[in-house]
Amino acid sequence: MKQRPEKFFDEHGNRLDGRQRDEMRPVDINIGVLSNADGSALVSYGKTKVIAAVYGPREPTWRYNVLPDRASLYVRYHMAPFSTEERKSPAPTRREIELSKVIRESLEPVVMTELFPRTAIEIYVEVLQSDGGTRTASITAASAALADAGIPMRALVGGVAIGKVDGVLVLDLNEVEDNFGEADMPVAAAPDLGLITLFQLNGVMTLDELKEGTDMALKAIERIVEKEKQALRESATEVEAL
């Protein structure tokens, strides 16, 4: 079990991993990392690594759940047994059930499901290594994988978590800051539409902190989605007109 650090900031006000309070960990986005899936993306926020795969739109496997006017979106968020400090049982936990739901609800506002009635779009997310912010990295990965699968979307979505440690708001909290901090506030948004698509708070915040944290998250998400676009552009093959 990890110990609570004595303090979260050094004498210069830097965080334990050397970051400033409004600094992201290095974000890396790799597109098309799987060959079978229609779309895929590997995303890392520092040590947090998640992989997302998209299948569809395709014939639904679950026939009872067919929507006559649009595609059904399916999301499975799952943590690999080796992703955590101590081995995690592969059986789905209540946390994974809830996160699958909120991740689905963070993507539904942008996926143009109305174009594919009676089909299923399936999104599988595996957390390969967990070091805080896995759900928000998952949303970024899922959004990139959906785009890689060529599924029409109104905008791209990105996510980041805001933390509160020693009474200070920090951007993109890592595991230690999450475990021993006072708050974890994951946010996802579609900056091109100006929409917040995921909002959760685990912890205690004043109204001012909540607003400051949300603004901080939204600014960071703009940069994350920019990276997503860049990665997607790089992965695309240029086709010369005949």
Partner: peptide, 28 residues
């Protein structure tokens, strides 16, 4: 979630829609 001092002690957006920043703060 709020306590009696009006501090926010929990939050969850639920449902398939989204909020503009303005709507979100208004709801809060």
């Amino acid at each position: 979630a709020f306590d009696e001092q009006g501090t926010v002690v929990g939050a969850q957006k639920t449902g398939s829609g989204a909020y503009s920043v303005d709507e979100f703060y208004r709801a809060v």
